[in-house]
Every structure is written in structure tokens, then in C-alpha cells.
């Protein structure tokens, strides 16, 4: 859990960095309109006060985060969480993190409106499925690479010319082939390479599959 928290905080920092530009832009937009403390924003109320048809005061909790140019942002949050709940949730957070909180509420509200039954839980579940599928595929491909390298190692053992015929037989399963031809006096010239059989792409699978799946599953228990 603590490790997940650390990762979570890392991601939080990334998100915060990305979001930094947004409040600056907002501040730039708002600044020319603001007057002395207590003055009403009579020119352009924020999206929240516009939707709720009320006066937008200088201390309005929504105005820094819900620009009048993006009314749909507040509309979705208002429908899913309610204005008073959004206000409470923003006030509970340190001011320096309210922009991130507002943006995450907008995101969650949009997901909830898009999928009224499963909401963000559905998105999280789908992503967890995708992570598991990708991990399984990666494990399989890496195992196949290992098999190829092992075959390469075996192939080098039968290359020496003095044991060529014997080594070839020892690789097994060649007894059904016609009797080996007589040794040629001169080696033939190599011909154009044939592409490997498509079936070779699915040649190998790890024998420890179940164990690895168990490990993979535990990693995805984000809220566990």
C-alpha cells in the first residue's frame, strides 16, 4: 500500500506539472476583470454563477477554476456532484491543489455521464484488463526469444565439420529421412533464404505460466 501511495504521489506530481499552465492562463484571463476586494464580477461571471444565475463575487469559490468560456465543464460537475458538494470538496483541499481537484472532478463527471452505470470504475476495470493482457503477451514473447536463443546455442554445437553427420543424427527424429547423400567434393553455393514458417511465431510458451499470472494479478490490486 505504501509503495502504491508513492507511485500515486509521483503521478500526482506529473499531473500537477501539466496543470500548472492552466491556472496561469486562468489568472491571466481573470486579472483584467478583477477590481478591489468585494467588487462584483459584473462583466463576466464564472461558468458556475452563470449557470446558477447568481452574482459572482470576488470570493466566489468556483471562479478560478470554471472559466465562463468553458460552461460545459461546470455543467457536468454540477449534474454529477452538485454545486454545494463541489464547493465543499474544493474548500477541503489546500488552495495550491484546487485546480487539480477541479480538473479531476470534471474528468470523473464526464466519465460518469458517458457511462451512468459503471463510471470511473468501468474505466479502471478496462485498464486493468488491458494491463493484464499486455503483461501476458510480453511474457510470452520474451519466453519465445529465450527459446530461440537456446536453439541458436544448440545449433552451434553441430556446426563442426568433422562431426557434421553424426551431430545431425543426434538432434533426433531424422531416421525417417532418405539415406544421407554422399559427401560432395565441393560445397554448394548458398541459395536465397526462405522466410521462417509462420507457425514459428507461436512456437514457445513458458512452463511457469500460472505462477507468473499470480504475480501479475497482485500488481494490479490498486485499491487493495
Amino acid at each position: 500500500m505504501s509503495r502504491e501511495r508513492e507511485r500515486f504521489e509521483e503521478i500526482g506530481k506529473k499531473i500537477k506539472r501539466e496543470a500548472d499552465a492552466w491556472p496561469h492562463q486562468m489568472a491571466g484571463i481573470r486579472r483584467p476583470m478583477s477590481g478591489p476586494p468585494g467588487t462584483l464580477n459584473t462583466i463576466t461571471p464564472c461558468a458556475a454563477c452563470k449557470l446558477l444565475r447568481r452574482r459572482c463575487a470576488q470570493e466566489c469559490p468556483f471562479s478560478p477554476y470554471f472559466s465562463p468560456h468553458e460552461p460545459h465543464k461546470f455543467a457536468s460537475v454540477h449534474k454529477v456532484f452538485g454545486a454545494s458538494n463541489v464547493s465543499k470538496m474544493l474548500m477541503e483541499v489546500p488552495e495550491s491543489q484546487r485546480a487539480d481537484a477541479a480538473n479531476s472532478l470534471v474528468y470523473e463527471a464526464n466519465v460518469r455521464l458517458r457511462d451512468p452505470v459503471y463510471g470511473c470504475m468501468g474505466a479502471i476495470s478496462a485498464l486493468q484488463q488491458q494491463v493484464q493482457a499486455l503483461q501476458a503477451e510480453l511474457t510470452a514473447v520474451r519466453s519465445e526469444i529465450l527459446k530461440y536463443k537456446q536453439r541458436e546455442a544448440v545449433a552451434t554445437l553441430i556446426v563442426p565439420s568433422n562431426s557434421q553427420v553424426a551431430g545431425f543424427h543426434n538432434s533426433g527424429g531424422v531416421s525417417v529421412i532418405a539415406p544421407p547423400p554422399q559427401r560432395p567434393t565441393t560445397p554448394p553455393q548458398p541459395t536465397t533464404a526462405h522466410p521462417p514458417s509462420p507457425s514459428s511465431c507461436v512456437f514457445s510458451q513458458p512452463t511457469t505460466r500460472d505462477l507468473e499470472y499470480g504475480n501479475i494479478e497482485s500488481e494490479n490490486n490498486y485499491f487493495g
Binding site: I15, A101, S104, E108, C120, M121, L127, Q135, E137, Y222
Partner: peptide, 23 residues
């Protein structure tokens, strides 16, 4: 209270991206 479900979604999206590159 700051990131809610978005934190988990963001984390998982990062994981998907990394796995796709490794694959």
C-alpha cells in the same frame, strides 16, 4: 480529495503505455 479515481486511471494508463513500448 485532489485526484480521486483520476489518480488510479492515470497510473494504469502509464502502465499500459510502458507495457506497449516493452512489447
Amino acid at each position: 480529495p485532489v485526484y480521486g479515481c483520476v489518480g488510479a486511471i492515470s497510473y494504469l494508463q502509464n502502465q499500459v503505455s510502458q507495457l506497449q513500448m516493452q512489447l
